[in-house]
Amino acid sequence: MIWYALLLAAVAAERVAELVVARRNERWSAARGATETGQGHYPAMVALHTALLIACPAEAWLADRPFVPILAWPMLAVLACAQALRWWCIHILGPRWNTRVIVVPDLPLVTDGPYRWQWLRHPNYVAVVAEGLALPLVHTSWITATAFTLLNAALLTVRIRCENRALAATTVSTVPAPA
């Protein structure tokens, strides 16, 4: 169980790093006349992601969930891939990436990296979904995985609609992002 706590601490530290990047990018965007939308769902998103990090060890400990290697190792691989995809998105979007829905007017949509696939408009959310399933299942916390997945699906429905509206209202034609 200690190794699982260390894994969760690493994921929590990664979240803090994301918030630092997001705050820096928020200042960059504000300096360029950005607008923020979707403030209403943001606290729910923060609460849900915080609850995930609390519920994973709580369920594993309180329900005495076993470590099942045949499940844990593939879930660790999914988790690692999700983190790689998330940071690829952050890298490709550069200062445009944020945990909030903040759009700088008159910038073209990014079409590089994972954003080049028309059928996958929100690759960062694929990473979130994968992580929300994999992180709890590393230690067989299936109730947490199920609850997070269902609540996250509802939240992402709101979030993606909000983001699509914001992007459609403020962007120009699509071109690859500057390197």
Rank of each mutant, 00 (worst) to 15 (best):
A154H: 10
H139V: 13
L93A: 13
G94W: 03
C162T: 15
A80E: 04
V101K: 03
C81Q: 03
D112S: 15
W73C: 05
H122P: 07
W142V: 14
A169N: 11
S141A: 15
R96G: 01
A168D: 15
L107H: 05
L93Y: 12
L71F: 13
W97M: 01
A147S: 13
T146P: 01
A153R: 04
I102K: 05
A82M: 06
I92D: 08
T140W: 11
E163K: 08
Q83I: 10
V68W: 14
H139C: 10
I92G: 01
T171W: 02
A168H: 14
A130L: 14
L135A: 12
N124I: 04
P74W: 08
L79W: 01
G113P: 14
I102D: 00
L71R: 03
L85D: 00
R159A: 09
D112W: 07
R96M: 07
L156W: 01
C162Q: 13
E131F: 09
P123K: 13
T171R: 15
L167W: 09
P114W: 11
W87P: 00
L133A: 08
T146L: 15
T170D: 03
R116F: 06
R159W: 08
F148G: 10
P69M: 11
A145N: 12
A82D: 02
S173Q: 14
A154I: 08
R165Q: 13
T157R: 13
C162S: 15
V138C: 14
V101A: 08
G113I: 13
A166S: 12
T140D: 05
Q83V: 11
S173N: 12
G113F: 14
Q118G: 09
V138K: 05
L150T: 12
L151C: 15
Q83Y: 05
R96I: 01
Q118K: 09
Q83A: 07
I70T: 12
A77D: 02
A127T: 08
A84Q: 06
A154Y: 13
P105F: 05
C81M: 12
A169C: 06
N164C: 04
R161V: 04
Q118W: 04
V104M: 02
L150D: 07
L76S: 08
A153P: 02
R96Y: 04
L150Y: 06
P105Q: 05
R165I: 11
